[in-house]
């Protein structure tokens, strides 16, 4: 019997935005919740993020943006993931994201958006409930 595999999460900062307080905090809290977490660091292109997801065999990709570039970067990451055949990787986002962009992002394949002030345990629960099972 193999041990149950830990949920593997990539936390990524797309674009040139340097605000990574939230990304680092979440990475730590997800790890404490028993997940395996890779934080990419700053200045990631969508290609770099997808490459990391592929190499790490990630179940979840979490994207953080506070510079207003989510409408460009988040759908692009989803698109590239799907091109690589990573159809069941859960993509979630956070940062400063106006509510009228959320619908567009969800239509583009981002599963959920977590705005400022979201308690981190809600994100932990969400991942545990919605992440692919294997």
């Amino acid at each position: 019997m193999s041990q149950e595999r830990k949920i593997k999460v990539i936390i990524a900062k797309p674009g040139l935005d340097g605000h990574d307080r939230g990304a680092k905090l979440l990475a730590r809290i997800l790890a404490e919740a028993g997940m395996e977490v890779v934080y990419t660091g700053l200045r990631q292109t969508p290609e770099m993020i997808v490459e990391t997801a592929l190499q790490e065999d990630a179940d979840v990709v979490g994207l953080s943006s506070l510079s207003g570039v989510h409408n460009y970067f988040f759908p692009r990451v989803v698109e590239l993931l799907r091109e690589k055949g990573l159809n069941d990787v859960l993509v979630i986002g956070g940062g400063i994201i106006p509510s009228d962009d959320v619908e567009f992002l969800k239509k583009s394949g981002v599963a959920e958006i977590f705005g400022p002030g979201t308690p981190t345990y809600e994100i932990v629960e969400y991942i545990k409930t919605h992440c692919r099972k294997r």
Binding site: G15, L16, D17, T45, S67, G68
Partner: peptide
């Protein structure tokens, strides 16, 4: 904006989506 702060012109590939934003 972030491209200016990180030393990229507005037509640089890494500036896509960021020009004039913050």
């Amino acid at each position: 904006d972030l491209p200016t702060q990180s030393g990229y012109d507005s037509d640089h590939p890494l500036a896509v989506g960021e020009v004039g934003k913050v």
